Amino acid sequence: MQLKYRPDGTFRIIQFTDTHIGNMPFHEEDERTFKLIEDALAYFDVDLIIHTGDIIWSEGVKDADIVFEKTMEYFDKAKIPMAITFGNHDTEEIITRSDLRRIFDQKVEVKAEKTHSMIVNDREAYCLEIFHSDKDQVAHAIYLIDSGAAAPLDIGTYDWVLPQQVAWFSETSANYRRGDRHKRHLVFQHIPLPEYWQAATKIIDGVNHETNDAISAPYINTGLFANMVIDGETWGMFVGHDHDNDFEGVYHDIHLVYGNVSGYQTYGAEERGVRIIELKEDDQSIKTYRVKANVFSR
């Protein structure tokens, strides 16, 4: 399904992250998460749903494939284009990323149209294109990058963006570059980049309340952020992963943003909710804000 600005020149994205749906029969906290999904999608008039991973628990979860499928049904009922990437908890045991992609492709009726898809080590990177309202020209490129799970070497805890994915971003972003250095493109993944440490010292909204590592980023830096800066037209990145962080910080004129944890059956003291990203066509401006569930719950 093609994504396009509305005739009034607006486009709105809703980001869910870290829903962490577990075993069936579903826990009462999972039922609360399903209600949050339904309430948010009924309350906000959005054009695109993006989930940035840890959609489900998979370790020790029987029939994780069915759990994933049933979780997707709650999003698909809204009939709004959806795109996803995965986190470190989605494929911990038998189920694989390719299994989940297949289920998503087969069972979700309203999917955003992918371009430039690349899969390496069963991790997909791809683009979405948002078009202008009155012409067949891309206004924004949305990059979704699977940031992996556990560190493959005994260096830190979490995986890093693969060098092949960094090269993919560098090559793919060239297709959308206009040379005007206007910040218009967005990146979504699950695990934060190491540069989120610097962004945490330059917060313009939100909180950095994580009590383990303040930023659970990989210890290896493979250069994605540098390529975002060099591109010159990337506005920022949206991640999940750290449930007690939901801030927006700015580092080297790149916005580094956390989604609001959306799932109840997982750790974290922050109130559950979603993040909204609003795009305006007339000036190509971008703004984002977090909304807690008590605002939109029915």
Rank of each mutant, 00 (worst) to 15 (best):
M1T: 10
Q2D: 12
D8N: 11
F11Q: 10
I21Y: 06
I21V: 10
E28L: 12
I37K: 00
D39A: 08
F44P: 09
F44H: 11
F44K: 12
D45H: 09
D45K: 14
I50M: 05
H51Q: 06
D54P: 03
I55P: 00
K62I: 13
D63K: 04
A64R: 06
M72G: 00
F75C: 07
F75K: 01
K79V: 03
M82D: 00
F86C: 11
G87K: 03
I94P: 08
R101Y: 15
Q106P: 07
V108S: 01
A112N: 00
E113C: 08
E113M: 15
V120D: 12
D122R: 11
C127Q: 05
L128T: 02
D134M: 09
Q137C: 14
V138N: 00
L144T: 05
S147P: 00
S147Q: 01
S147L: 08
L153D: 14
L153V: 14
T157G: 06
Y158E: 10
D159C: 15
W160Y: 15
L162Q: 11
V166I: 08
W168H: 05
T172C: 13
N175I: 14
Y176A: 06
G179Y: 04
K183E: 01
K183T: 01
L186Q: 09
F188A: 00
Q189V: 09
H190V: 00
E195R: 13
Q198D: 14
K202W: 12
I204K: 11
G206S: 07
V207A: 09
N212I: 12
I220M: 14
I220K: 13
N221Y: 08
A226T: 15
M228L: 15
V229S: 01
H243C: 04
F247Q: 04
Y251G: 08
D253G: 14
I254T: 14
H255W: 03
L256Q: 11
G259H: 05
N260T: 14
N260A: 14
G263V: 02
G263C: 05
G263T: 04
Y264F: 15
Y264E: 11
Y267G: 11
A269M: 13
E270Y: 11
E271A: 12
E271M: 15
V274G: 07
E281W: 06
Y289H: 11
K292Y: 02
V295M: 09
F296C: 10
